[in-house]
Write a protein that binds this DNA or RNA. Structure first.
Lengths: 199, 199
DNA sequence: GAGTTCACCTTACTTGAAGTAGGTTACCTT
DNA sequence: AAGGTAACCTACTTCAAGTAAGGTGAACTC
């Protein structure tokens, strides 16, 4: 208002801006505490525009999550190509994940908010998006392991993803734990199993 | 209104009623969709009473979660006493968890909503409550395993809990997976490790 | 048994954020 | 330059969280 009169911007570009700002807002303030009014203002646009492009607050969060999950998936997938052994593939994937967590705090913080959508119409879509991640892992496992039947591979993938996400949250409270250490912890259980350490 | 005039009820009893109804409401409708007005009405009391006893909507959810987590903790702890070996203790604990998930759907559904509180003032308290669970597991591990240093035991506990919670969510989409099967999947990875299945 | 008190309870309000109706303006095409 | 359309806005409704201020009944004194 005080400064330049607002410029008209093409849809695709605007959407990118909105997602960028929304990602900030959601990760800083939390999903429910962040308001659409505030996001609109920070983008430099009025609220109905957000609804024009994303239909609802949930829709906006969904778009943010979709983008971030895609980035995470990309990173972990890249990390595993060219691994010689199953062990190496697993270790590289884990490390890539924990590095992502550390370096892209905002993105990770956002992903932690996806749970805010359970019980809402968007819950299915969230699971859909997560599936992309677990399917990737399940595929990797099929490449490198004798995973038995197909649901078993799926279950294993969910298991690993859940474990790592929780471990990542734990890492946030322990700043002295490096990605390498976290990877070590995870590998230690996943690869050798607990039987190796039983008394 | 139409029927009996409202009876006066002592605080402790009222709180129990409120938590019971709230647990229903939150797990059915989801945290944000459930309204305090609705809960109050179903309890047969006016809204300010809820605030009198729980201060906020978050506070109410927190009370529900606290109770449910306590029940879960109780169940898993009981399951492990009297186990002869580490393997047996682990298997029993896992089974107890997956049975709980299946039999007390509403309770489990509620726990899944605890994530709705991340980024809010109650987040710390949630982690506090979760800690009770992980501490229990960490203690069990110390009993049965050479877990190395202390943070490592903690990390392992988080890892296991996260993995099981995710696996439980996966089980919801696969009704044909029994608690015994879920336990099998989990044991298979946790106990033997993935190295056992590498090609 | 009449008053006093305190815990339990209510009605009626404020506040703030999600979502919407309907109109306006800059840009591009022809 | 006219006209269409995509981008945009102001001003509104609705609904739920949270609150202020006061009412009422049961227990306890005297």
């Amino acid at each position: 208002m005080t400064t330049a009169k607002r410029k008209r911007v093409p849809r695709a570009e605007r959407m990118r801006q909105m997602i960028e700002i929304a990602e900030e807002a959601f990760s800083e303030r939390g999903y429910s505490a962040a308001s659409m009014d505030e996001i609109a203002e920070r983008v430099g646009v009025s609220k109905p525009m957000l609804y024009e492009y994303f239909n609802s607050k949930e829709g906006l969060l969904l778009a943010c999550i979709q983008q971030t999950r895609a980035a995470l998936r990309e990173v972990t997938e890249r990390a595993t190509v060219g691994a010689e052994t199953a062990e190496e593939a697993l270790r590289r994937g884990l490390l890539a994940f924990f590095v992502f967590i550390l370096e892209r705090r905002q993105a990770w913080s956002l992903l932690r908010h996806e749970m805010a959508l359970i019980g809402t119409p968007a819950a299915d879509e969230i699971e859909q998006i997560r599936r992309q991640q677990t399917d990737l892992i399940a595929a990797l496992m099929s490449d490198h392991f004798d995973s038995g039947d197909d649901p078993r591979a799926e279950a294993s993938a969910e298991f690993v993803v859940g474990a790592c996400e929780r471990l990542a949250i734990w890492c946030e409270r322990h700043e002295d734990v490096s990605p390498e250490m976290a990877t070590g912890y995870a590998m230690d259980i996943l690869w050798s199993g607990l039987s190796a350490k039983a008394r």
